[in-house]
Amino acid sequence: MGWLRMTPAELAALKLSLWVSAWAVAASLPVGIFTAWVLARTRFPGKPLLDGLVHLPLVLPPVVIGYLLLVLMGRHGLIGALLDRYLGVVVAFNWKGAVLAAAVMAFPLMVRAVRLSLEAVDPGLEAAARTLGAGPVRVFITITLPLMTPGIITGAILAFARSLGEFGATITFVSNIPGQTQTLPLALYALTQVPEGEAGAARLCLLSIVIAMAALLVSEGLSRRFTRRLRGQR
């Protein structure tokens, strides 16, 4: 089983992938919950447009998203230049950019899962909480959010798995720099481009499958457990 031992470069790619994906989920979860809430509970004229915008990364070629990020968030991009000047934050060609690319690509999956769970929350329970003296914010935190937990877990884990697999937008936006932006899929791609890379590619391929499968199983298990708890079956 010697061929299963990973090289330091592959290990670095794995670590970077986990790091980038964790950050992508952590950073986009609050935004995702807010967006899901807006889509599920509010009505305003431009709503189909927002809905479409949220779902764009799901249907656009990832390279388009990567290019858009480059144009908007690059060092001389519309938003990137402002970020650099006023906050000193540069996301082009470093791990933060990889986080951004992964977060944007995983966003529709997260919002869908969270929104579904939000739509399953009975507004009657929220109304009951209001009559018990809780203001809207307290109702959201103590009633709505806990009841959404299964969807939030599912959304977070799906987004995490999607982030681990993110390729096109990442390579377009932040390139393929070992130790900086070379995540697991990018390392795998690099290995397929060199003659002696086959064993490494096979290892990373296997690793990707294992991680993705584990994420799906954990997500399913957790959300079942929470649903059971809500039904009082513990």
Binding site: D122, G124, L125, A127, A128, A129, R130, T131, L132, G133, A134, G135, I143, P146, L147, R229, L230, R231, G232
Partner: peptide
Amino acid sequence: PEQRRVGYVFQDGRLFPH
């Protein structure tokens, strides 16, 4: 509603399941 001091018992109970 939260400032009305009006208690409400709903037809379907509406207990918080969690």
